[in-house]
Write a protein that binds this DNA or RNA. Structure first.
Lengths: 112, 112
DNA sequence: TCAACCTGCTACTTTTTCTTTGCAGGTGCC
DNA sequence: GGCACCTGCAAAGAAAAAGTAGCAGGTTGA
């Protein structure tokens, strides 16, 4: 995942997703080891409901991925892990991404 | 400006600042050429008041800098330019930054 | 059956961010 | 003086994001 491969809107989504302390901690925790929702919530000291909201956003931005796994004792557990990504943000890379910002959407959105 | 040199809170501020289409466009425009407020607002097609708000945020995050310049005809103009920055965002760099997240602030904020 | 785990969702409130509006100051030129 | 530029700020309304609470489902094992 490279910044030069992202459209402006995608970059925007990734930035907005990372711009949150909880989600930064989630990425950090998952970078150390994959984990399942309930345990991750306990580790981070936040409610499961809140964690789920953040995980959904991270997944939507493509920063983490999940899959169900059934433990030995039959519990269905959802394991999350980080997507290996590398965003190189510089004025120049932002310039490139910004070219494809909202362009089509502007037209669709009925600015006329 | 390197991500590994930033505290978690500083990284958070930079991310939150960049996570906005207007501000992304501003950085992009200033990456091409420095500019003064009124003209930049016209170029981007947004109001001057709105631009000023965004410029303040960008400046607070250290992404742009400004200085007053007096034109030949005596007008005081505020020129902005981008700060050369390079943020390399990967799960690992985020892990490092996340260690210093909210720690002191938590104590200050009266969690005691 | 009940407890202790696992998952999911959504309606609602609170908080934060964004944007507009309107006012203030200044200069030079016709 | 009036107009065309330049700057600045802050209150207030509108929109988006964050967080909570409460409900649903499932499994194993005592």
């Amino acid at each position: 995942m490279e910044v030069t491969n992202l459209t402006g809107d995608e970059l925007l989504q990734v930035l907005a997703t990372l711009a949150n302390p909880h989600r930064l901690r989630v990425v950090s925790a998952l970078a150390e080891e994959r984990n399942y929702v309930s345990r991750l919530a306990r580790d981070l000291g936040i409610s499961r409901a809140l964690l789920q909201v953040h995980l959904r956003k991270l997944e939507a931005a493509g920063l983490v991925s999940a899959h169900i796994e059934v433990s030995e004792d039959g519990k269905a557990m959802k394991f999350y892990e980080v997507t290996p990504f590398a965003l190189h943000l510089t004025p120049k890379t932002i310039m490139i991404a910004a070219r494809s910002l909202g362009t089509e959407s502007d037209l669709e959105a009925g600015v006329r």
